[in-house]
């Protein structure tokens, strides 16, 4: 049973890949793209404030999509009652939208982090910060990718 399912899944995935190159694999036409669903899940119908207090640094042009450095920081006093809880990083053009979710605490002192992500092609990258009072900040950057980083 287990083997049959796996074989079926592999076959199905191979078919889909052959039929439609690109990130819209196995996606129901009536469903919004995966990254939109991921954003909606985080916001849970809250309205995010754009830009300003959330800084997102990433190169405008990434020569190698396998490793694109980025830095995030949100203005916050980081006290027990007023701090940044999480910052999510979402790709709009990778086969899977999730990149990373950083989880901060008042002990973090500073709501900032740096890391490196994969970008399969030229796309927008979205970052969303959730504050301890339930408010959200959002920022978006477009990155032009010369060589994609998803093994394609």
């Amino acid at each position: 049973m287990k083997i049959d399912r796996r074989r079926f899944a592999q076959g199905a995935a191979a078919l889909t890949l052959g039929a439609a190159a690109g990130p819209v694999l196995a996606q129901d036409a009536t469903q919004p793209p995966q990254w939109e669903q991921a954003v909606a899940k985080i916001l849970n119908s809250a309205k995010p404030v754009q830009g300003g207090k959330l800084q997102f640094e990433i190169p405008e042009i990434a020569e190698n999509g396998n490793t694109v450095p980025f830095t995030l920081s949100a203005d916050s006093p980081m006290t027990a009652t007023d701090y940044v809880k999480t910052i999510h990083v979402i790709s709009t053009g990778n086969p899977q939208p999730g990149v990373v979710t950083f989880k901060f605490t008042p002990e973090s002192g500073k709501a900032a982090a740096s890391s490196r992500m994969r970008l399969g092609r030229t796309q927008d990258v979205i970052v969303i910060a959730e504050m301890s009072d339930g408010k959200f900040l959002m920022a978006k950057k477009n990155v032009k990718v010369t060589i994609g980083g998803c093994g394609g």
Partner: peptide, 9 residues
């Protein structure tokens, strides 16, 4: 500090 990591890393 913690991080949930997804395949985009």
């Amino acid at each position: 500090f913690a991080a949930e990591i997804h395949p985009g890393m």
